[in-house]
């Protein structure tokens, strides 16, 4: 290989890299062209800091609720929401470290503790649905007809039927551990599998292992067609699943988008936000029932 070609090679490589960088930069900056935020909203001023970071449980993201709601929020207020979908526990930790502006979570006891510790600004009820136990269609542990959720869980443990736990301090995980406690059982052994993953992943895992798992109804409806599982137990009042919205205390850190967080809290509990939540349907069913009391 003679030198002229050598020079050409490196220069061509550098030029190609630059071109690719330019192209992807332009394309990625272009973002989504067809979102609601591009619809001109005539009477709204542009917020000073237009990015709000929402730390939330996986169920609101996986069910498709946020993908449905957020374009309307952006259209109404001009804020773009960065959704970090983790478990409720992790979301609150993000709030505690000031790495989120607003939280949408579902573990009431934890939420109250969070407010009490001064990490939150304001908390409001937003919506609710319920938890269900899903498992193999054949129902090997015989959950059908259990009088309540603690009995259902006891039967799983007695049969040593496989059970997938979120194991991630998420709202669902907290609820699950509460039920084991109420049933007087310490879940332990090879049948009890702590996944450390999001809800959707856990359902897919449960399907793979033909195991039971506790899930919120919205995620289940969004995922069920990809699995061979069925609802094994539902309907207990103890499986009530309320969601709350919390602004992160702006006093924690000057980098917090306090206005943005407040705007989200106001909007999702507004009449319009609440109506939109109700209008979000999967398979013809309402997934989340709004319950903010004005």
């Amino acid at each position: 290989m003679h030198l002229t070609t050598k020079r050409t090679f490196v220069r061509t490589a550098a030029l190609a890299a630059l071109l690719v960088l330019g192209a992807v930069q332009a394309f990625a900056m272009g973002g989504k062209e067809t979102s609601a935020s591009d619809v001109p909203a005539t009477n709204r001023p542009m917020p000073a800091n237009p990015r709000v970071r929402l730390a939330t449980t996986t169920s609101t993201e996986n069910s498709g609720l946020l993908a449905y709601l957020l374009p309307f929020f952006t259209e109404d207020t001009g804020y773009t929401v960065d959704v970090v979908a983790v478990g409720t526990g992790a979301a609150m930790k993000l709030g505690e470290n000031a790495d989120a502006d607003v939280l949408l979570v579902h573990a009431r006891a934890l939420e109250d503790a969070y407010m009490k510790a001064g990490h939150g600004g304001e908390r409001r009820d937003v919506m609710y649905n319920d938890f269900i136990v899903v498992g193999p269609k054949a129902d090997p542990a015989g959950l059908k007809g259990s009088p309540n959720s603690t009995t259902a869980f006891s039967r799983i443990a007695a049969a040593r039927a496989s059970f997938v736990s979120r194991g991630d301090k998420s709202g669902t995980n907290v609820k699950e551990l509460d039920i084991w406690k109420a049933a007087g059982i310490v879940p332990d052994g090879t049948w009890y599998k702590e996944a450390g993953q999001g809800m959707e992943q856990c359902i897919i895992m449960a399907d793979g292992m033909q195991a039971y798992t506790l899930t919120d109804r919205a995620t289940w409806v969004a995922v069920k067609d990809k699995t061979s599982l069925a609802i094994s137990y539902e309907g207990d009042a103890g499986l009530f699943n309320p969601y709350g919205v919390i602004t992160v205390n702006p006093a924690k850190n000057t980098a917090i988008n306090a206005f943005g967080g407040k705007a989200f809290l106001e909007w999702i509990t507004s009449e319009r936000g609440q109506k939109l939540i109700e209008s979000f349907k999967l398979g013809g069913q309402t997934m989340f029932f709004p319950n903010y009391k004005h």
């Binding site: 989504k32 960065d82 959704v83 970090v84 979908a85 999001g198 959707e200 897919i204 995922v223």
Partner: peptide
Amino acid sequence: GGNIRWYTRTMTTTIALDAGKGE
């Protein structure tokens, strides 16, 4: 990155997310 849609979602985080969801 937090795997934020239209912001910090990359090929690998999408794969990690979508495969886990069975998509």
